[in-house]
Lab assay of single mutants.
Amino acid sequence: DVEEQIRRLEEVLKKNQPVTWNGTTYTDPNEIKKVIEELRK
């Protein structure tokens, strides 16, 4: 469920934690926001 994935990513973003997505770890909040934007398409 895309909405659920977006919610999880936004939670991690608020906590300033790194996100691992498709084998890539993102630590930059701007990169995480880009992943969220991609999911919304």
Score class of each variant (00 low, 15 high):
28 D>T: 08
39 L>G: 00
31 E>V: 08
36 I>H: 00
17 Q>W: 14
4 E>Q: 06
37 E>R: 06
18 P>G: 08
7 R>A: 13
2 V>I: 15
24 T>G: 04
1 D>Y: 13
40 R>M: 10
25 T>P: 03
14 K>Q: 13
5 Q>W: 15
12 V>L: 15
29 P>H: 10
40 R>Y: 11
34 K>Y: 08
16 N>E: 02
39 L>D: 00
26 Y>S: 01
36 I>N: 00
16 N>D: 11
9 L>G: 01
29 P>R: 05
21 W>V: 11
13 L>D: 01
10 E>N: 06
23 G>R: 00
11 E>R: 04
41 K>N: 15
19 V>N: 02
31 E>D: 14
15 K>R: 12
8 R>Q: 15
7 R>L: 13
19 V>K: 01
33 K>A: 13
18 P>E: 10
2 V>G: 04
13 L>H: 03
19 V>H: 04
16 N>S: 07
27 T>P: 02
12 V>T: 07
21 W>Y: 13
39 L>Y: 03
30 N>K: 11
18 P>V: 13
40 R>G: 04
23 G>N: 06
40 R>L: 10
31 E>M: 07
41 K>P: 04
26 Y>W: 04
26 Y>G: 01
26 Y>V: 04
39 L>N: 00
13 L>S: 05
25 T>F: 14
25 T>D: 04
6 I>R: 01
31 E>G: 04
37 E>W: 05
15 K>W: 13
19 V>W: 14
9 L>W: 07
33 K>I: 14
8 R>E: 13
39 L>H: 02
33 K>L: 13
29 P>K: 08
28 D>V: 03
34 K>I: 06
21 W>I: 13
35 V>M: 12
9 L>I: 10
3 E>D: 12
21 W>L: 11
2 V>L: 09
15 K>P: 02
35 V>K: 04
33 K>R: 15
13 L>P: 00
16 N>F: 13
1 D>T: 12
10 E>P: 00
41 K>V: 10
28 D>Y: 03
4 E>V: 05
37 E>N: 07
33 K>M: 11
24 T>M: 14
19 V>D: 02
26 Y>E: 01
39 L>A: 02
6 I>W: 03
5 Q>N: 09
19 V>A: 07
2 V>K: 08
2 V>S: 06
38 E>P: 00
33 K>S: 09
14 K>W: 11
20 T>E: 13
19 V>F: 12
27 T>G: 06
25 T>R: 03
32 I>A: 02
28 D>S: 04
22 N>K: 09
39 L>T: 01
37 E>Y: 04
17 Q>T: 10
10 E>M: 10
11 E>A: 08
17 Q>C: 08
6 I>F: 03
15 K>H: 13
19 V>I: 13
16 N>Q: 10
36 I>K: 01
20 T>Q: 12
35 V>A: 04
1 D>S: 14
9 L>Q: 00
27 T>R: 08
39 L>W: 03
36 I>L: 11
41 K>R: 09
13 L>I: 14
30 N>R: 12
3 E>R: 13
31 E>N: 04
17 Q>K: 09
11 E>D: 12
24 T>K: 07
33 K>T: 07
24 T>H: 14
29 P>Q: 07
21 W>G: 02
37 E>T: 05
4 E>R: 05
25 T>N: 05
19 V>Q: 01
22 N>I: 02
24 T>R: 13
10 E>T: 08
37 E>G: 03
40 R>H: 05
29 P>M: 15
11 E>W: 04
23 G>H: 04
7 R>S: 09
20 T>K: 07
27 T>S: 09
39 L>S: 01
10 E>G: 04
38 E>K: 05
24 T>V: 15
30 N>M: 13
12 V>E: 14
39 L>M: 06
33 K>V: 09
40 R>C: 02
4 E>K: 06
30 N>G: 11
16 N>I: 04
40 R>E: 04
41 K>I: 12
2 V>Y: 11
21 W>C: 03
17 Q>F: 15
7 R>M: 07
35 V>E: 03
8 R>K: 14
40 R>S: 05
36 I>Y: 02
23 G>K: 02
16 N>K: 08
5 Q>A: 12
15 K>T: 14
8 R>P: 02
31 E>K: 05
34 K>V: 07
20 T>D: 10
37 E>Q: 08
4 E>L: 07
13 L>A: 10
34 K>Q: 09
30 N>A: 14
36 I>P: 00
13 L>E: 02
32 I>T: 01
14 K>C: 04
13 L>T: 02
38 E>F: 11
24 T>S: 08
7 R>H: 07
7 R>T: 09
12 V>F: 15
34 K>A: 12
24 T>N: 13
22 N>F: 11
25 T>M: 11
30 N>F: 12
24 T>A: 10
28 D>Q: 03
6 I>D: 01
36 I>E: 00
23 G>F: 03
24 T>F: 12
27 T>M: 05
3 E>H: 10
9 L>R: 00
5 Q>K: 07
14 K>F: 07
19 V>Y: 13
18 P>S: 14
38 E>N: 08
41 K>H: 13
4 E>S: 09
34 K>R: 12
26 Y>P: 01
9 L>F: 10
19 V>P: 03
34 K>N: 08
31 E>L: 10
14 K>G: 10
9 L>A: 01
34 K>W: 11
10 E>D: 04
18 P>I: 13
5 Q>G: 04
9 L>V: 02
28 D>G: 05
14 K>Y: 12
6 I>L: 06
27 T>K: 03
6 I>M: 04
23 G>V: 00
16 N>H: 12
6 I>A: 03
27 T>Q: 08
25 T>S: 08
21 W>Q: 03
29 P>Y: 09
22 N>H: 11
17 Q>V: 12
2 V>A: 06
27 T>W: 13
